[in-house]
């Protein structure tokens, strides 16, 4: 692909750019937000962005079937991310409880 020429719009290009945008938004959120819960949300956005990239990379353009390996990888990534989210949220809840107890 050349810069400057108008690229042919295909789903993989559209969603690929969208995925990168989502990842970048998540990155900004993760680094620049103060709120603890919102940072978890931002990290989850990053992981969806990475998922977009892999799903786009697996796409082959009909009628060809997509490559199943990246699909499996994304499913793994989703499960890994929900585990990490659950731990982060448990830490947030515990921390809030501890901080409130100390204040009173």
């Amino acid at each position: 692909m050349m810069f400057g020429t108008m690229p042919q719009l295909t789903p993989d290009l559209i969603y690929g750019v969208a995925g990168i945008a989502v990842f970048a938004i998540g990155l900004v959120g993760a680094l620049c937000t103060q709120d603890r819960l919102r940072r978890v949300l931002a990290l989850k956005l990053c992981s969806v962005g990475a998922g977009f990239l892999l799903v786009v990379a697996a796409w082959r353009g009909p009628p060809a079937a997509p490559d199943p390996v990246p699909h499996a990888l994304v499913i793994t990534g989703i499960v890994v991310m929900v585990s990490a989210t659950a731990v982060a949220l448990a830490l947030i809840r515990r921390l809030q409880t501890l901080e409130t107890e100390d204040d009173t």
Binding site: D12, Y15, V55, V56, A58, P62, P66, H71, I78
Partner: peptide
């Protein structure tokens, strides 16, 4: 992702 033929994902 359904549009990208990835129903499992």
């Amino acid at each position: 992702w359904v549009r990208l033929a990835a129903p499992d994902v």
